[in-house]
């Protein structure tokens, strides 16, 4: 049986303000989904809600993995169940080396039942694997000794997120604008890297404005989000259309959601 991440009629509010208004999305392991939409349409909110961010209040609907409701799980439990999010803006953790951070993370994710204080993956074994993955991603080994995202350039941070994904081997990965702030070459490298580290093994949700990240990761499905809902789903051709022609056709076709989107955008602008 294929493994499935299923989101049903998801409503999410942030600081009392409704952002998502009934999202339905099913991702099977092995599929690549692109999620596109204008700024403020709720794409990142969906990612954060799936990951279990405490500031995003789920006011209705369900998120399930293989039929198991995970709504009550915190981010740690979700990570251990195989969910990963590459952050749009990764946090830095000064004083903690990337390698140490990842060794503990990988140990927890690979042994979901691990209790605090139990042994970590043996150092040698872990180092070998980390080195292999870093070379695959064409990253300098020095990276592992640097403090997590501390003083990283935008491109380095995004590559570090992909490295983390490679080491944690999630079942389902959300890539939240992993291409933003990167130059053309960096996006190409990121796109290749995602494909190389086994896109086929994962169910991937790529949140993006552009189609470049999709070059090496052709989506099986493209979803368009507007006003907190997925209003249209198509194939790879839909992603190309949105990137080249924008959202005018979509807005015209879904006037109600377009009005909500405008409202949210205005609130954001005046906030």
């Amino acid at each position: 049986m294929s493994e499935t991440l299923k989101i049903t009629d998801l409503h999410v509010a942030v600081e009392g303000k409704p952002i998502l208004r009934g999202v339905n999305l099913t991702i099977n392991r092995g599929e690549t989904h692109a999620l596109m939409g204008p700024n403020g349409s709720g794409k990142s909110t969906l990612g954060n809600a799936i990951m279990g961010h405490p500031s995003y209040d789920v006011t209705g609907g369900t998120i399930e993995i293989n039929g198991q409701d995970i709504m009550e799980w915190d981010a740690s439990e979700r990570a251990r169940a195989g969910i990963f999010m590459a952050f749009q803006r990764p946090m830095s953790i000064p004083g903690v080396k990337m390698a140490d951070f990842l060794r503990h993370a990988a140990t927890n994710v690979r042994n979901p039942e691990r209790k605090e204080g139990e042994d970590l993956i043996p150092m040698r074994e872990f180092r070998k694997e980390l080195k292999e993955k870093m070379s695959q991603l064409r990253m300098d080994v020095e990276f592992a000794r640097r403090y997590v995202n501390d003083g990283f350039s935008g491109g380095e941070m995004k590559r570090a997120e992909i490295l983390q994904m490679a080491m944690l081997r999630p079942k389902f990965a959300i890539l939240d604008e992993t291409d933003s702030g990167l130059d053309v070459d960096a996006v190409k490298l990121a796109s290749q890297s995602i494909a190389e580290i086994g896109g086929a093994e994962m169910g991937i949700l790529i949140i993006t404005h552009h189609d470049k990240l999709l070059d090496y990761n052709a989506p099986d499905f493209t979803h368009v989000m507007l006003g907190g809902k997925i209003v249209e789903t198509g194939g790879v051709e839909l992603a190309q259309e949105l990137y080249t022609q924008g959202y005018d056709r979509i807005r015209a076709a879904y006037p109600e959601e377009a009005a909500l989107e405008e409202e949210l955008a205005e609130e954001t602008a005046t906030a």
């Binding site: 740690s76 952050f87 903690v96 951070f101 503990h104 993370a105 990988a106 927890n108």
Partner: peptide, 19 residues
């Protein structure tokens, strides 16, 4: 961020304090 990588809340706080 650390919890999204599988750290429990307590482990995450320990990590940040250690850093």
């Amino acid at each position: 961020y650390a919890m999204s990588r599988g750290y429990t809340r307590t482990e995450a706080i320990r990590l940040i304090v250690a850093g």
